[in-house]
Amino acid sequence: MTKARIYVTYKSTVLDPQGNAIQTALHHLGFADVESVRMGKYLEVELHTDDTSRAQEEVEAMCQQLLANPVIESYRFDLETVQ
């Protein structure tokens, strides 16, 4: 099995009102050092293969077709072979 950990985030040019709201809340809590907050999505996908290059290709295609919207989001992922 291969486990993919996928991170989907807004492109830097896209406004993130949720991230801004969280940032304000963190400031209210006293975390004055907080410079910025960007909110994204985290997905774990398990694949029925130990072939890392195959998994790499498949997860890449998943991100492009569904998991991220290339108009507003970028993505990155890492793969781990698991039992």
Partner: peptide, 17 residues
């Protein structure tokens, strides 16, 4: 329609949340 690529751009969460 934007997700399907039949129209350009995307629609995000309202700015006021």
């Amino acid at each position: 329609l934007t997700e399907a690529g039949l129209l350009p751009g995307a629609l995000l969460r309202n700015s006021a949340l």
